[in-house]
Nucleic acid binder design. Sequence first.
DNA 1: CGCTAAATGACTGACAGTCAGTCACTGTAC
DNA 2: GTACAGTGACTGACTGTCAGTCATTTAGCG
Lengths: 200, 200
Amino acid sequence: MARTLDREARRAEIVSAATAAFAERGIAHTAVSDIVKAAGVAQGTFYLYFTSKDDVVVAVAERIGDIMIDGIERVVAVPDRSAVNKFLALLDQLSDSTSDPDSSELVEIMHREGNRALHDRLAEQLTPRLVSIIERIIDQGLAEGVFAVPDTGAAAWFVLGGLQSAELSGVPITEMPAALAAATALALRALGYTGDPHER
Amino acid sequence: MARTLDREARRAEIVSAATAAFAERGIAHTAVSDIVKAAGVAQGTFYLYFTSKDDVVVAVAERIGDIMIDGIERVVAVPDRSAVNKFLALLDQLSDSTSDPDSSELVEIMHREGNRALHDRLAEQLTPRLVSIIERIIDQGLAEGVFAVPDTGAAAWFVLGGLQSAELSGVPITEMPAALAAATALALRALGYTGDPHER
DNA sequence: CGCTAAATGACTGACAGTCAGTCACTGTAC
DNA sequence: GTACAGTGACTGACTGTCAGTCATTTAGCG
C-alpha cells in the first residue's frame, strides 16, 4: 500500500481522524492507537508524519486557525471599507465563527473542557496573525485620522487581549452580545476613536 | 509514622516537593513517583491528598496565585491612594513579582516552556481575583470622577486582558517596560481617564 | 529484478492510579 | 495499669494503558 497517497494528503487524513477522535473523547482520552485505527494506518505510520501526539494536536489547531483567519481576511480585504467598519466586521467574524458550518463544530470541540490544550495551541498561533491584521486596520485608521495611538503594535496587542478576555469572562452565552458590545466600545476608545461605532 | 502530621501540613509538604520537581524537570517529565520520593511518602498517600497528577499542578498554581494576590492586595489596600495611583501600583506589582524573592522563582518556573499547564492553571484562578480587585479600583475612580465607563465588570475584564496580552506579545524583556507603559496608557484611556498618568 | 523508501504492527518501557494489608494510636472495659 | 478492639492514615507492590520504537515486509521505480 506504499506510495499510494502523497505526503500532504496522508497527513491531512490523519489530522481529520484525530479531529474526529478529539471531538468524541477529548484529547486525554484519545490514544494514538485510536487515531491510527480511524485513519486506517499503522501506529508506526503516524510517527512518520508527526513527531508526537502533541504534534498532531498542534496540527489540528493549525487547521482550525487557518479556517478562522481565512474568514477574517475575507471580510477585512473588502476595499473601500473604513477602518472602523473593518474592525467591527473582524469582531463579528470572530464571534460568529460559530455560525460558519465549516468551523462551528471545530470551535465547539476546542471549547470543550478537557480540550484546553487545543484551545491554547490555537490561541498561540492565531494571536500573532490576528495582531498583524489588527495592525493593518489601525494603520488605516491612523491614515484616515479616526484613530490616535503612538504605537500600532502595542495597541494591536492590547486591544486583542482585551477582546479575547471578554470570551473568558464567564458571562452566560445569552449575555455575550452585550459583553462584546461593551468590549468593542472600550477597544475603540483605547484606539482614540471618538465617534459613534454604529455609523458603519 | 501515622498521624504525625496534620492534613494541611502533609499536603503542603507534597505541594512543595511537587513544586521543586516541576522546577527541575518540568511537569511532563516529573512522575508522581518522583514527587512522592522527594516528599518521603508512599505513592498511595499521594492519592489520599490529591485526586490526580493534574490536581497537584492546580495546587502548585494556587500557591503561586496566593502569593501574587497577597502582594497586590497589600499595595492596593493603602488608604488615601487615588484610583489611578492604585492602578499603577497594581501594574508595578504584577510586573515586579519577579523582584520578590518569594515568588520570583515560582514565576520563573511557571514561564518555562513545558510548564504551560502551570501557567494556564494560574491564569485561570488568578484572573477572576484580579478582575475583582480592578473592579474596586474602577469603582473608586468613578466615585472620584476620573474614570468614565458604563460597565465596571466589562471594563475590568477588558483592561486586564489587554495588559496580560502585553506579557504574551513576545517583546524582549529589555523592552518590556516600554511595552508596559504603552499598555498602561491604553488601559487608562479605555477607562476614560484623560489626565497624565505620571501625576501620581 | 534489485533498490529504495514507505508502511507495518508487535513490542517495550514508563507511568498513573489502585487496593489489600499494616501499624500507630485512641477509647473503653475490667 | 493492662488488655484489646476499633479507626484511619499510610504503604508499596501491582495492573492496565499508552506513547513511542524498530526489525521486517511490501510496493513502486528504473
